[in-house]
């Protein structure tokens, strides 16, 4: 049920994380684990992709991994 999920995958939540520090796609997926949001893996990937396309965050490589970040 929706009430069992304690984390919501929203544009606001993603923005807050990316303002705080640069994150890889894997870092973001860890923040919105399916068992915590109640979404399926496919939904999570699709929703996160849509949100990232809208936010259009800056990108930089740290330790050879692409990280997204936003500035306020």
């Amino acid at each position: 049920t929706p009430s069992s999920s304690d984390v919501q995958l929203t544009e606001d939540a993603v923005r807050r994380y990316l303002i705080r520090k640069p994150m890889t796609t894997k870092d973001l997926l860890k923040k919105f684990q399916t068992k915590r949001t109640g979404l399926s893996s496919e939904q999570t990937v699709n929703v996160l992709a849509q949100i990232l396309k809208r936010l259009n965050p800056e990108r930089k490589n740290i330790n050879d991994k692409m990280h997204f970040y936003l500035t306020e």
Partner: peptide, 20 residues
């Protein structure tokens, strides 16, 4: 599992690569 996380990350990056 970490392999599922890897698969999801790969799928997400593939989606975003079309856009970037």
């Amino acid at each position: 599992s970490s392999s599922e996380a890897d698969e999801m990350a790969a799928a997400l990056e593939a989606e975003l690569n079309d856009f970037m």
